[in-house]
Design a protein around this nucleic acid. Sequence first.
DNA 1: TTGGAAAGTCAACAAGGCTGACATAAACTG
DNA 2: CAGTTTATGTCAGCCTTGTTGACTTTCCAA
Lengths: 171, 171
Amino acid sequence: MADSGMGAGPRPSGESLLFLTDDQLRRGIEAMFFAYRGFTADPDRILAEKSYGRAHHRALHFVHRSPGTTVNNLLNILGVTKQSLNRVLRTLIEDGLVQSKVGVQDRRERHLFLTEGGEALEKVLSEAQRKRMRAAYREAGPEAVAGFRQVLQQIMDPEMRKHFDQLKDGM
Amino acid sequence: MADSGMGAGPRPSGESLLFLTDDQLRRGIEAMFFAYRGFTADPDRILAEKSYGRAHHRALHFVHRSPGTTVNNLLNILGVTKQSLNRVLRTLIEDGLVQSKVGVQDRRERHLFLTEGGEALEKVLSEAQRKRMRAAYREAGPEAVAGFRQVLQQIMDPEMRKHFDQLKDGM
DNA sequence: TTGGAAAGTCAACAAGGCTGACATAAACTG
DNA sequence: CAGTTTATGTCAGCCTTGTTGACTTTCCAA
């Protein structure tokens, strides 16, 4: 198929550009499920060797992405409790992958940075993940990629969408 | 922006249709992360009320999708251990949402079906999820949706891709 | 100077992954 | 028929990562 004919079934007359059966929507849902598994598979393998988990990867990713970010900001982006993040962050700091610096203007805040070791691990993880994404993009083609990104942005919660857009500015 | 100009930076001459900087790939990765959160948010809220989790939702989804499927098949699709699945399946059976029938040809097998109650919960969950997907699809447009699906299929592991394609046949 | 925000810590708990071991019944095979 | 393999279920125990609640320390700002 590839979304060409949609076989039998009644079709609501007129009105919408996009005719979306529940089954077609279910296919999209299943695609998200299976794809997300692939999306995390490569980093997960690497993390398992080092006895880290996905939570560590997420922290490394966003600290790399926004060096000097505060704990509170990270909390909002990741959408977890401070206790949960703190556990992960503590091990990363103990292992010398993340550095926490007291804020200059507001000394209550902690600003987070990756150390050389942290950058190195982040690079290995994100390269594994990018490799798969690059291959997928190449197979699907530029127009598919644009559509992919558009739909993903629409799926996000508005709150998360805001974080997503804010990260863009820093690039 | 929306992927129009990509600002400064060197560009490898010729060769590839698709020019993908690491930063562009990182944006795709972040989009997947944030979107997946939105993707699961609505069912998660409903499940929390009933003290079920995502694992229950997945089981309900795939049993609904392939009524009469065996435990082993479900195991392969979900990619978890039988102990993990069994815990979830047991509670669903105890709560009368799933029915397990001894196989006719092979009496070692258990064939799984949703009861009326199971169908009802599955419907509530999937309607919440489909509502978001439908809105996202509508905003993004049909071409974006096609691209979205193409890229997701490419991201999957070949093994998972096989399961994904097999499910299609049953539709 | 005092209230409250930011951050950290401790304790306890739950979901849902995992491994390993073991039991049963059924099917298959020599 | 005896032995092996397969499908399933179950018990016990462990790990990660999420949660809530309570409490402390630091320190900015009104």
